Simulated scan of single mutants.
Amino acid sequence: MTAHPPFRKVLDGVATREQMFQLFNQHKDNPDLDPFSGTPYSGEWFQIDAASYHFMLGLLPPLFQRTGLFGMSEFKAGNVTSVFFAIRIRGRERWFHGFCDLTDRQSPDKMRAAIIAHETGASDSMTRAEKLEAIWNMTPVELRGTARSADPETGWAEHRGKRTILVNAGRHDAAFRLLDDLSDLAIDECLSKVRLRRS
């Protein structure tokens, strides 16, 4: 299993309401993960819009609430729950969602600090790991999967269970590639295609 940074951005741009709910459940179909553990979600975050923030605030009574953040009273799994943030960055109010493991009571504050640090960095401040997570999350389910050792053509026996995506979909050279092996150029191309679809 790939080691993740403690806090990681999993979507480039602002999530739509539909994307937000998809990201709430993005790990549910992974057979290698314990569905009762919130570990796969813990530390993931992404930007949402104001309407989604206020919708979620009104959905259930918050587990806790203070200026600029609240936590959902319904846990994702284990000690992991959704925390929503309203953060002013460079004079503009922005809204975020993150999964925090509340076994560490400071987790919401640490995530808030990580979001601010990330979003006030360079204009393209996503790390390679964050870009790969964003590509995975934005790739339609039918165009992604995991490497199987049963397929002799791929030679991926040693990569069994690692994430794969279809690159160059719709072209004659379309092929599944290991997500972690994408070149920097391929990563930038994948992210630019998503930005074009949104514009």
Score class of each variant (00 low, 15 high):
residue 1 M to H: 13
residue 1 M to Q: 09
residue 1 M to T: 09
residue 1 M to K: 08
residue 4 H to C: 05
residue 8 R to F: 06
residue 8 R to I: 12
residue 12 D to I: 04
residue 12 D to Y: 07
residue 13 G to M: 08
residue 14 V to A: 06
residue 15 A to W: 03
residue 16 T to I: 01
residue 17 R to M: 07
residue 17 R to I: 07
residue 18 E to N: 02
residue 21 F to C: 11
residue 23 L to Q: 08
residue 23 L to Y: 06
residue 24 F to C: 14
residue 25 N to G: 08
residue 26 Q to Y: 05
residue 27 H to I: 03
residue 28 K to P: 02
residue 29 D to K: 05
residue 31 P to Y: 13
residue 32 D to V: 10
residue 32 D to L: 15
residue 34 D to H: 08
residue 35 P to H: 05
residue 37 S to R: 09
residue 38 G to N: 06
residue 38 G to A: 08
residue 38 G to V: 07
residue 38 G to K: 04
residue 40 P to C: 08
residue 41 Y to W: 12
residue 42 S to K: 07
residue 43 G to Y: 02
residue 44 E to Q: 09
residue 44 E to H: 06
residue 44 E to N: 10
residue 45 W to C: 00
residue 45 W to K: 00
residue 46 F to R: 02
residue 47 Q to K: 09
residue 50 A to M: 08
residue 51 A to L: 03
residue 52 S to P: 01
residue 53 Y to H: 04
residue 58 G to L: 01
residue 59 L to K: 05
residue 61 P to E: 13
residue 62 P to R: 02
residue 63 L to M: 00
residue 68 G to V: 00
residue 72 M to H: 01
residue 76 K to L: 02
residue 76 K to R: 01
residue 76 K to H: 00
residue 79 N to D: 09
residue 82 S to R: 01
residue 85 F to T: 04
residue 85 F to R: 05
residue 87 I to A: 03
residue 89 I to T: 03
residue 89 I to M: 03
residue 90 R to V: 09
residue 90 R to A: 14
residue 95 W to I: 07
residue 95 W to E: 11
residue 98 G to L: 10
residue 101 D to M: 14
residue 101 D to P: 14
residue 106 Q to A: 12
residue 107 S to G: 06
residue 109 D to Q: 13
residue 112 R to H: 15
residue 112 R to M: 15
residue 114 A to L: 05
residue 115 I to A: 06
residue 115 I to H: 02
residue 116 I to N: 12
residue 118 H to N: 14
residue 118 H to F: 11
residue 119 E to P: 05
residue 119 E to Q: 15
residue 119 E to M: 15
residue 119 E to S: 11
residue 120 T to K: 10
residue 120 T to Q: 15
residue 122 A to E: 14
residue 124 D to N: 11
residue 129 A to N: 07
residue 130 E to H: 02
residue 130 E to D: 07
residue 131 K to M: 10
residue 131 K to R: 11
residue 137 N to F: 10
residue 140 P to E: 11
residue 141 V to N: 10
residue 141 V to L: 12
residue 145 G to A: 15
residue 145 G to V: 14
residue 148 R to M: 14
residue 149 S to P: 04
residue 151 D to N: 14
residue 154 T to F: 13
residue 155 G to I: 11
residue 155 G to D: 10
residue 157 A to E: 11
residue 158 E to H: 06
residue 158 E to G: 01
residue 158 E to I: 04
residue 159 H to V: 01
residue 159 H to W: 07
residue 161 G to T: 15
residue 161 G to L: 15
residue 162 K to V: 00
residue 163 R to I: 07
residue 165 I to K: 04
residue 166 L to W: 08
residue 168 N to R: 12
residue 168 N to L: 09
residue 169 A to D: 15
residue 170 G to E: 13
residue 170 G to F: 10
residue 172 H to V: 12
residue 175 A to F: 05
residue 176 F to H: 08
residue 177 R to M: 11
residue 178 L to A: 05
residue 180 D to F: 00
residue 184 D to N: 08
residue 185 L to F: 05
residue 190 C to S: 13
residue 191 L to A: 09
residue 192 S to W: 06
residue 192 S to P: 00
residue 193 K to I: 05
residue 193 K to V: 06
residue 193 K to P: 02
residue 196 L to H: 13
residue 196 L to V: 12
residue 198 R to T: 09
